[in-house]
């Protein structure tokens, strides 16, 4: 405590970026967890994942009017729409399920291209404004600084979502099936669980997570024409850095990326464009051999 009090002046200007980094990191985690599940279980590189997030973001922009009811409505609609898009994607993937990753990835890219075009056609080419509930529109004072109330609440909500996700994956039957399917898909199929159903369920869950992240994160990474690309890139970097399939690793990687994108930019503005690249290069180069062993098994 004493050290913190003494150091306050020096760390003071970086407190807000650091807090922003936590919000950003948790948002990226919720978005990326869908990609992790999708990749880990269904073994599909879902290039349409950013589009699923954008569905949530556009829903939030269209439905939010400053009241709590509209937030609940937007969350419900966004999650359902993105989950439905996930199921649709699973349906499209069924005919090529026996094929290779390359064609599956290309198929999801085609869906992303078409989906992005439909979103722009439906909501217009301009980046829409997102109105957060009026009660959260102001700012609160954190350690002597003003900070957007919405982001503070978002940190709490995203932490709850992350904890719930952990419990679902660890403790429920669905979570156990999902983990079992990662380890041994043939055995799970022998137990009488259809791989197609697991794939549909996983893509729906991935869509729901991305949709929830899109609605709640719309004031942070707002909907727009390049949202899908941005979210896909951040999620990919996080999934790769997190060690592909480990939820705890993904969370750590997401928080690190969040801090790099906010605190790192505040500390080293001239190096800002290279920070994300350098972080990925450094971690991958250091962990390459350890990860190779794990990747060999996927």
């Amino acid at each position: 405590m004493i050290a913190v009090a003494v150091g306050t002046n020096r760390i003071d200007p970086y407190l807000i970026p650091a807090l922003d980094g936590v919000a950003y990191g948790l948002l990226v985690f919720v978005a990326a967890s869908g990609l992790v599940v999708c990749f880990g279980v269904a073994n599909i590189l879902n290039l349409a994942h950013g589009t699923l997030y954008a569905i949530g973001g556009y829903t939030a922009a269209a439905l939010l009017d400053g009241g709590w009811a509209s937030l609940a409505l937007a969350l419900a609609v966004g999650v359902l729409a993105a989950a439905a898009a996930g199921v649709l994607l699973a349906g499209l993937l069924t005919p090529v399920a026996a094929g290779n990753h390359l064609t599956q990835a290309l198929l999801t890219f085609g869906v992303a291209l078409a989906g992005g075009s439909l979103l722009v056609a439906g909501f217009g080419p301009d980046d829409p404004q997102v109105r957060v509930p009026a009660a959260l529109d102001g700012s609160v004072v954190v350690a002597g600084h003003r900070y957007a109330a919405y982001r503070l609440v978002f940190i709490a909500v995203a932490a709850v979502i992350s904890a719930a996700l952990y419990l679902v994956v660890r403790r429920t039957r669905a979570g156990m099936l999902v983990r079992a399917a990662v380890d041994d898909p043939e055995m799970v199929a022998c137990l009488g669980v259809s791989p197609a159903r697991i794939r549909a369920g996983v893509l729906a869950a991935a869509g729901a997570l991305a949709g929830a992240a899109g609605v709640l994160g719309a004031p942070i990474i707002g909907p727009g024409t390049d949202t899908a690309d941005t979210v896909l890139l951040l999620s990919l970097v996080v999934v790769v850095l997190g060690g592909l399939g480990s939820m705890a690793g993904t969370l750590l990687a997401a928080l690190a990326i969040g801090e790099i994108q906010t605190l790192g930019v505040a500390l080293l503005p001239s190096a800002a464009p290279f920070l994300l690249f350098a972080a990925m290069a450094a971690v991958l180069a250091v962990r390459a051999r350890g990860l190779a062993a794990r990747w060999g098994a996927t």
Binding site: F39, L232, L236, F277, A281, L284, A285, L291, W295
Partner: peptide, 30 residues
Amino acid sequence: TVPLVVHARGVIVLMITLAIGELVVTILGR
């Protein structure tokens, strides 16, 4: 970028190379 991809195979190379390509475009833009 060789150290990033040389130990990976299959779809993981796809992910890493995609991230590299996108990061390069980000750098070019900024």
